[in-house]
Design a binder for these strands. Structure first.
Lengths: 158, 158
DNA sequence: TCAATTAGTTGTAAGATACAACTATCGATA
DNA sequence: TATCGATAGTTGTATCTTACAACTAATTGA
């Protein structure tokens, strides 16, 4: 249990700034050759999770299905994603990376890697690892909180 | 210099997720009584930096002045911000927190503090501190990078 | 005094996101 | 098996954050 106010203060403040800065930096230095945050996450997800339906995907990414639907539509238009209808359920169209999507993702990853290497040139390996792990832990904490909250609500409803 | 690919991989991935999750969590659990990220940062800035003009403020916050102008306009409409024209320069209107703005900010801070305390209930004091510091360091790194980049560009131009 | 600069506003646009209304399909049961 | 409730997905609408560009009004330096 944390009671130290100034720690929280710092955390909040820097989180708010971080969200703004991180995005701005990506846009300023990568945008030409990169894709946006959402595209990146979507492509990444498709690469890892093979052919999946929109619902399944939006659920794992914690996105509203309408949001995912639009984003996928735009990726499809660019030729990065292909759909085949699920033989077992005609409502579902299975999504997967196309060749182009795949190589685009590879390229985007490389670029990001280069950019981060440059940006974090003065950081030690250890700091980078720690930061990555703390971000991951935070994300997991939010996820767990969300689930706990939902189940609490459900219990209350009953 | 970092060369470890998987560290970078983790960092990128978790950063992208973090931006989404952090915002979603705030909205989901605080939105009723809270203000958005930008409002929070603006109010906070005004509190710390007393009466300032729009330009000065948008520069320190690294926001386009048009963005800041609109956000301030909306805060003004809510009665959180007051403007007085600068006697030394009629183009400038000096912005400062009103009483309501001030107490709203106090309340928002408290709420956030409560929420974070709940969310990070399982985190140790040390982890919180570390995370806050790493976020801060990252923000500073981006800021420095931006300035270096700009001055490099200027040198090249000459 | 007049041209160039600066502060600020407003028009327009784009990306991320959500909710709600709708269509098409599925599956269980009466 | 015909129907009705649930589910997958799309589309309309809306909000938030942000930026760039065009504009106005005030300032300042030559």
């Amino acid at each position: 249990m944390i009671t130290d106010n100034s720690t929280m203060q710092l955390l909040q403040q820097e989180m708010a700034i971080f969200i703004r800065r991180a995005e701005a930096a990506r846009i300023a230095y990568l945008s030409e050759h990169d894709c946006d945050r959402s595209t990146y996450l979507l492509l990444q997800h498709l690469k890892k999770n093979g052919p999946v339906g929109l619902k399944a995907m939006s659920t794992s990414l914690q996105l509203d299905i309408s949001t995912a639907s639009r984003q996928i539509a735009s990726l499809e238009a660019k030729g990065f994603v292909e759909r085949t209808s699920d033989p077992k359920d005609a409502r579902v169209s299975l999504l997967q990376l196309s060749e182009e999507g795949s190589s685009f993702l590879r390229r985007a990853k490389e670029l990001r890697h280069q950019f981060f290497t440059l940006l974090l040139g003065e950081w030690s390996q250890e700091e980078c690892e720690q930061f990555g792990q703390l971000l991951q832990k935070f994300n997991q904490t939010v996820e767990q909180f969300r689930q706990r909250k939902i189940s609490l609500l459900k219990e209350n409803e009953q």
